[in-house]
Nucleic acid binder design. Structure first.
Lengths: 202, 202
DNA sequence: GTCTATAAGGTGATAGAC
DNA sequence: GTCTATCACCTTATAGAC
């Protein structure tokens, strides 16, 4: 059990409450209770609800900005890179299952929030584009718009988690176990699906 | 211009405000202003904010409960069915681009909400499962868990829309035009991607 | 059915003692 | 740094006139 100072305790508590309730639904009192401190200390450390939220949102976004670039560096086989990315990304999701919905919800309410973060994180997808185009040129994979392929891979990882209530209740008739099995399967199967879709069969 | 009575005007206004701001972020005053009526009329017709919201949520959910079953009925070729479903579903999304985020956000805040709706809509996916399993048996498509295939198809349709701010700003560097072109392309390309992934090449 | 007025309770934020 | 007390405002909801 690590000893935390007040500033850190607030962030941990704020993450929990904001992720669960959203900006509009969260209450400063609830965050204070969760942190085991007085409400006015929230303002002492972070001045306003909005500023505290921005702090939390940036941390959450950073966790989930996919390390696409890193996964696509190096000389490994292109299909291995896809397998590695899918496995790594789904593992992050496993550990933080509520963050994708949180990001999507709050960005839906206020898309401008993202613009602040773009510069602050460097998210250049160009190397991934280049890698995809090279594979197409080498005729290893079928013709596809690189952006489409990137979106497809991430969609197959993220959607099953953001739509959890719907999938669990409608596809798996309420079974948490079946839902979890599907997510686990996906760490391998999602990459297999993608590779099968793009592999050149000429 | 169709003449609307007060009850209908309220629902239309409530849809707009709730979808934009969410349950917690929406204000009854704003809904009243949007409908051009007095705030107390909202309570006269719908008793409480929560009840009005539930009304709106059910309408939104119904619009988006994918008509999977319908698309998979009939004797058409299985791949044609997929093409038809993807095109139809992406066309609905085109017309209601903010509803998927709305449903995901509000279900994230309160997953129990879905349970009320399940019974009220009949959403039996069994016929789709059967159709998929038959194709596998006939060796027309590769071995795949039917639930995985269904989730993949919907993921490829829905994710690009719910993650719009991220995709538009990071993948397309802020270009609304590029984003829209991608969505349009997808009406054909998403089905092609899926078919290419599952088609048996033995 | 529609309005005005107001109740009743929350909400983020700050002042000031310790 | 941390607390108590309190401000100023906002929010849902209702009562009652027309």
């Amino acid at each position: 059990m690590v000893e935390k100072n007040t500033e850190e305790k607030i962030i941990v508590a704020a993450e929990k409450v904001f992720i669960e309730k959203g900006l509009a639904g969260a209450r400063m009192q609830e965050i204070a209770d969760e942190a085991g401190i007085n409400k006015s200390l929230l303002h002492y450390y972070y001045r306003s609800k909005e500023k505290l939220f921005t702090m939390v949102f940036k941390i959450a976004f950073k966790t989930f900005a996919p390390d696409l670039i890193k996964a696509f560096e190096g000389d490994d086989d292109f299909f291995v890179k896809i397998e590695r990315f899918v496995f790594a990304y789904l593992s992050i999701i496993d550990k933080n299952p509520h963050i994708p919905v949180f990001i999507i919800s709050e960005l839906g309410n206020n898309p401008k929030r993202l613009v602040d973060i773009i510069g602050y994180l460097d998210l250049n997808v160009q190397p991934v584009y280049d890698a995809i185009e090279e594979e197409i040129k080498k005729k290893m994979i079928k013709e596809i718009e690189p952006s489409d392929l990137i979106i497809n891979v991430i969609a197959l990882c993220v959607f099953p988690v953001v739509a959890k209530p719907i999938i669990k209740n409608i596809v798996f008739k309420g079974s948490e176990e079946e839902y979890k099995k599907m997510l686990d399967r996906r760490k391998v199967e999602a990459a297999r699906f993608v590779i099968s879709a793009i592999k050149n069969t000429d």
